[in-house]
Amino acid sequence: MTRFRPFAAALFLAAALPVAASAHPPIAAEEAAANFERDRADILAMAGNYHVGFNMQESTRWDPTYEVLEPKRSGGNEVVRVIEDTGRRIVLQHMLVITDDNDKTFVIKHWRQDWEYEPARVLVYADRNRWQWEDVPEKMRTGRWSQTVWQVDDSPRYGGWGQFETQAGIRRWRSNWTWRPLARRDAVRNPAYDRYYSINRHQLSPDGWIHWQDNTKMGIKGGKLVPIVQEYVLNTYIKYDDYDVKAADDYWAATRDYWAAVRAEWDRVAREKGGIAIEEQADTGTVVSGRLLEIADEVQERKLTTAKAIAEAKKLIETNTKTL
Score class of each variant (00 low, 15 high):
127 D>Y: 04
303 K>F: 02
64 P>A: 13
233 V>F: 08
141 R>D: 03
6 P>W: 08
194 D>P: 04
213 Q>H: 13
305 T>G: 08
231 E>W: 12
306 T>D: 02
140 M>N: 12
78 E>Y: 08
26 P>R: 12
153 D>Y: 02
1 M>I: 11
135 D>T: 09
209 W>A: 05
227 P>T: 08
271 R>D: 15
87 G>A: 12
305 T>H: 10
29 A>K: 13
274 G>I: 12
51 H>N: 08
116 E>M: 08
306 T>V: 14
227 P>F: 06
163 Q>T: 03
69 L>W: 15
316 L>A: 06
72 K>Y: 05
121 R>L: 09
163 Q>I: 00
279 E>H: 13
273 K>N: 10
255 T>A: 04
145 W>E: 13
12 F>D: 09
272 E>N: 09
287 V>T: 14
84 E>I: 06
9 A>M: 06
313 A>Y: 00
22 S>L: 09
295 I>M: 00
144 R>S: 10
55 N>K: 00
30 E>M: 10
292 L>S: 05
296 A>N: 03
110 H>I: 05
40 R>N: 10
190 N>C: 13
83 I>L: 10
304 L>D: 03
41 A>V: 09
250 D>L: 04
204 L>P: 01
307 A>N: 12
41 A>P: 08
290 G>K: 04
37 E>S: 14
218 M>G: 12
235 N>S: 11
30 E>C: 02
137 P>N: 11
82 V>S: 05
57 Q>A: 15
14 A>N: 15
87 G>Q: 08
123 L>E: 07
182 L>W: 08
106 F>H: 08
77 N>L: 04
198 S>K: 06
282 A>E: 05
232 Y>C: 11
54 F>H: 05
84 E>T: 09
311 A>M: 12
284 T>E: 11
279 E>M: 15
114 D>E: 10
302 R>K: 09
287 V>H: 04
311 A>K: 13
